[in-house]
Simulated assay, not measured.
Amino acid sequence: MRNLDITTLRSFVAVAESGGVTRAAGFLHLTQSAVSMQLKRLEELLGLDLFDRSGRTIALTASGEQLLVYARRMVALNDEVITRLTDQAYEGEITLGVPHDIVYPAIPRVLKQFHAAFPRVKVQLDSSYTRRLKSEFAKGACDIILTTETGIDAGGEQLCTKPLCWVGAPGGSAWRQRPLKLAFGRQCTFRPRVIEMLDAAGILWDVVVETESDRTIEATVSADLAVHTMIEGTEPPHLDRIEHGGALPDLPAHSINLYGAGGATGEVHDALVGFLRRAFQVNDGVALRAVSGA
């Protein structure tokens, strides 16, 4: 197996871009003979003539032009790896706040992508409910937060808008029972609107689980002891979207909003914002909408 050497490729790129060995040697802080030897070894390794030396100046052959495209990419990738893994500027910690119910499936993917790009930066994930996350962000305890809201506050950015849906146990019948048994978090922002719509539809209801634990809610619902509401597309695999055929009221849409994208925040912060945008936009088709003002 033959392996290309990055140092040799760097010399090849320098000669091709500067138009001669002398200028390239000065740029690389090497002697002309050292650069010429590297080029010779590269041609011998590939068994190709990379330069046309018939004229007064060095020109690339067709093979040389083709190699130059790859060489630039390989040198750039090498430099990016070294920078990301060793540059002290990319060390530190960033706090990301995300509501419990939208952590999956997007956030694990975002964290994986971010770690690959900035392995020395720690992301502290704060999973809570929207009201608390907005309070923490206002105090400066979170650098970036996502929220689930019917509206949006100044300084926020709407990533996507999705409807709420009823969820229950796979093949369950709890949604047919009256009074309708509900499981909700104590601080759930969906709860007041859902209850208002049930009242408007004349459907009796009873909150049988009121807790701070999403796991408790999921366990109760998956046991077919109650139903719950979630943003469409965020329901876990052990719960099903209820196809109620009009027996339950249709629920309003909610926005997934981002706070903390503005200002001169730096490359690391901006990269995490970019990953979050793409994660929540990928299947939505809703244009980003920045909201400004007091």
Results as ranks from 00 to 15, higher is better:
112 K>D: 06
262 G>A: 15
174 A>G: 05
5 D>C: 09
265 T>L: 07
30 L>I: 01
277 R>C: 12
215 R>N: 13
57 T>H: 12
222 S>M: 13
120 R>S: 00
92 G>D: 08
292 S>V: 13
186 R>V: 10
6 I>Q: 10
173 S>E: 14
82 I>H: 03
112 K>P: 00
1 M>P: 11
13 V>K: 12
68 L>N: 07
173 S>G: 05
108 P>L: 03
92 G>V: 06
140 G>M: 09
2 R>Q: 10
278 R>E: 14
191 R>Q: 14
10 R>K: 15
249 P>Y: 06
190 F>L: 07
285 G>Y: 06
65 E>C: 04
259 Y>Q: 15
125 L>G: 05
86 T>P: 01
268 V>D: 06
46 L>P: 04
55 G>A: 02
206 D>M: 04
13 V>M: 06
238 H>W: 11
92 G>C: 09
120 R>T: 00
218 E>H: 15
10 R>T: 15
164 L>G: 03
110 V>T: 02
171 G>T: 03
267 E>H: 05
167 V>H: 03
151 G>R: 13
61 T>N: 03
228 H>E: 04
140 G>D: 02
275 F>R: 04
34 A>P: 01
126 D>F: 07
38 Q>M: 11
269 H>M: 12
141 A>Q: 14
287 A>K: 08
286 V>Y: 04
3 N>S: 13
233 G>S: 11
261 A>G: 11
13 V>L: 10
182 L>T: 00
190 F>C: 09
120 R>C: 00
243 E>P: 03
1 M>K: 11
71 A>I: 11
139 K>I: 03
93 E>F: 08
200 A>K: 13
147 T>Q: 01
56 R>T: 02
149 E>G: 10
223 A>P: 05
247 A>W: 14
205 W>P: 06
293 G>T: 03
264 A>G: 13
271 A>Y: 15
234 T>C: 15
139 K>M: 04
65 E>H: 04
261 A>T: 08
73 R>I: 03
245 G>L: 04
111 L>C: 04
175 W>P: 01
61 T>Q: 02
30 L>Y: 05
